[in-house]
């Protein structure tokens, strides 16, 4: 059993950011283990994407191009992954911990009878064993986890590893055939309602979030404007989502999204423990709150005590000036 495999998630011909992070994590792991790095690219019309994986650090690429793989369906991708891994016995299979990566790794691990560890934020090697550091209990503690024997299926959390940047490297993709025919697949994708166009919270480098302090749906206006000027994503506390001021997609926290941006600006958010659970690993945290005793200031790097309706527009104006926007 040897080799490190990375599943490269692609949508409409573009490799997702979290997969570029996974392959850079895989590259280091392969180097420490002294084994080759293989990228897996599945989909339909993915010739270019598969070839691009060489440029992201893969030593070899296994591709599968089939109509059944056009939409991600774990019932189509899972058996393919499990069959390939069963035949070729890699030591480690890695993916980004996206909705798709999570499902795929769970499927592959179940079929391979392999240990499974999700949401790695650190990977190391002791002897020939891969050690995964991951948050547990909503990020209140960390665990160093390893798989006792057999292949290991791992996923890495978004923004925990730097994304691989393309080099000019090229190579020949090995193409394999799909293993489940359309007529044998138990699901059909019959529609898609896109919410794209908005910046994805989990990929965002900058997040500006509003809490109950924004006072109502219109109150998100200035917060969204600041996010916009910074090219960031708009976040929210659960209180505002529950009040119906903003859709659930924006919720950050224990029962929302876990984010880890370079900069997190919390506006009118008290900083409840459940909110912190979703954002505490942000690199720099700024809190704007009129209550000097708000718990968010205990976590923040920078704080401004004041009315967000004055402070946020002032910040937006200052950023506009500096960024020439």
């Amino acid at each position: 059993m040897s080799g490190v495999w990375v599943w490269m998630e692609q949508r409409q011909g573009a490799i997702s950011t979290i997969s570029r992070e996974a392959i850079s994590a895989g590259r280091n792991l392969a180097a420490s283990l002294g084994s080759p790095l293989t990228a897996l690219v599945f989909g339909h019309n993915v010739g270019d994407v598969a070839a691009a994986a060489f440029g992201l650090g893969a030593d070899a690429v296994i591709g599968c191009d089939d109509e059944t793989l056009a939409d991600f369906r774990v019932e189509a991708y899972g058996p393919l992954m499990a069959q390939l891994a069963g035949q070729r016995q890699p030591q480690v299979i890695l993916a980004g911990a996206s909705t798709r990566g999570r499902d795929l790794m769970a499927w592959a691990a179940a079929d391979l009878d392999a240990g499974l560890v999700s949401d790695g934020i650190g990977l190391g090697v002791e002897g020939q064993t891969v050690m995964v550091t991951r948050p547990v209990y909503a990020g209140k503690l960390l665990a160093k986890v390893y798989v006792k024997d057999g292949p290991q299926c791992l996923s890495v959390r978004g923004r925990a590893f730097p994304a691989a940047e393309p080099t000019g490297a090229t190579g020949n993709v090995e193409w394999v055939t799909a293993v489940v025919a359309e007529s044998d697949l138990p699901t059909k994708v019959i529609g898609f309602e896109s919410s794209e166009g908005t910046v994805s919270l989990t990929d965002a480098k900058i997040i500006v979030s509003g809490g109950r302090g924004v006072g109502g749906p219109e109150g998100f206006g200035p917060v969204a404007e600041l996010a916009n000027v910074l090219g960031g994503a708009l976040g929210a506390s659960r209180a505002t989502v529950d009040a119906g001021w903003i859709p659930y997609e924006h919720q950050v926290g224990q029962t929302g999204k876990t984010v880890s941006p370079d900069l997190y600006i919390a506006c009118g958010i008290s900083g409840a423990i459940q909110h912190q659970a979703g954002m505490r690993t942000s690199k720099v945290i700024v809190a704007i709150n009129k209550d000097v005793d708000a718990p968010i200031f205990k976590l923040a790097n920078y704080g401004i005590v004041g009315d967000l309706f004055k402070v946020v527009p002032a910040l937006t104006a200052e950023f506009r000036r500096r960024l020439g926007k």
Partner: peptide
């Protein structure tokens, strides 16, 4: 197959908050 036994506390967030104070919000910004 997964060994979960090695759990440890988070390294403390070393930052201490710096409160930005000034005479006007423009200056704070």
């Amino acid at each position: 197959k997964v060994d979960w036994s090695n759990v440890f506390a988070l390294p403390a967030r070393e930052s201490k908050v710096e409160m930005i104070e000034a005479d006007s919000v423009e200056e704070q910004a």
